[in-house]
């Protein structure tokens, strides 16, 4: 697998260094750390302080610590959590936890952000907010890849849609092209002939 012309290294950690960050389908924050600390963990791969710097509080430690705190606060403000920086992440409401996860992923300075079902479990209001947030991330100049099966969310959001069936790409294209493709309709709803005489409540 290649990314930006380079073959991707086989380890998750190296993939992050290469500029690809992800969030998780089921939220995996560091629950007993504050929101700010969570985002600062994301800065880990872009800082170089080693044990010696930290023990003796050498200039590099102080500079990077200051920069990481600043950048993390910026990102928290970007996702709208600046007032919850010192709340433990486990005490945040669900929607805020999702946004914090995105902020944490953004802290790794990615070129491509992978979001795994970012609106799972959200109500329509929160989904709209998530949509707005993803548009703002796109405006930062990042590529965003979203896996989702909320159709309204996908078709409002995405420039390009890939429809996957059984692990293979079925259709690729702009939103309305995919939406109207008979194969996609077949995969999602079924063939019209199959449904004869049966109620279609799916």
């Amino acid at each position: 697998m290649t990314f930006a012309g380079q073959p991707l290294p086989p380890r998750p950690r190296k993939v992050v260094y290469a500029g690809m960050a992800r969030t998780f389908q089921n939220i995996r924050l560091f629950h007993n750390m504050t929101a700010l600390e969570n985002v600062m963990v994301g800065r880990y791969c872009r800082t170089k302080t080693n044990a010696i710097d930290a023990v003796f509080r050498l200039p590099r430690h102080r500079r990077e610590e200051r920069e990481a705190t600043e950048r993390s606060r910026e990102l928290l403000a970007f996702v709208g959590l600046e007032k919850k920086a010192d709340t433990l992440s486990r005490n945040l409401p669900y929607g805020d936890q999702r946004r914090l996860e995105i902020a944490r992923a953004l802290a790794t300075d990615p070129k491509l952000l992978l979001l795994d079902e970012p609106t799972a479990g959200m109500n329509p209001q929160e989904t709209r907010e998530a949509e707005d947030l993803i548009f703002r991330i796109r405006d930062l100049g990042l590529a965003v890849l979203v896996i989702e099966h909320d159709m309204r969310f996908i078709f409002n959001l995405c420039d390009r849609v890939y429809c996957l069936v059984r692990g293979e790409v079925l259709v690729e294209g702009a939103g309305d092209v995919v939406q109207n493709d008979p194969r996609v309709i077949e995969a999602y709803i079924g063939k019209p002939t199959d449904l004869e005489g049966e109620p279609t409540d799916a």
Binding site: Y17, A21, R28, F30, E37, G42, Y44, T49
Partner: peptide, 22 residues
């Protein structure tokens, strides 16, 4: 420091820590 945060992150969720570049 960054190292301490990495340690606590590993304690909290090792897989997520790895995925964040720790």
């Amino acid at each position: 420091s960054r190292i301490g945060r990495g340690w606590v992150a590993i304690r909290e969720d090792e897989l997520a820590a790895e995925a964040m570049g720790v």
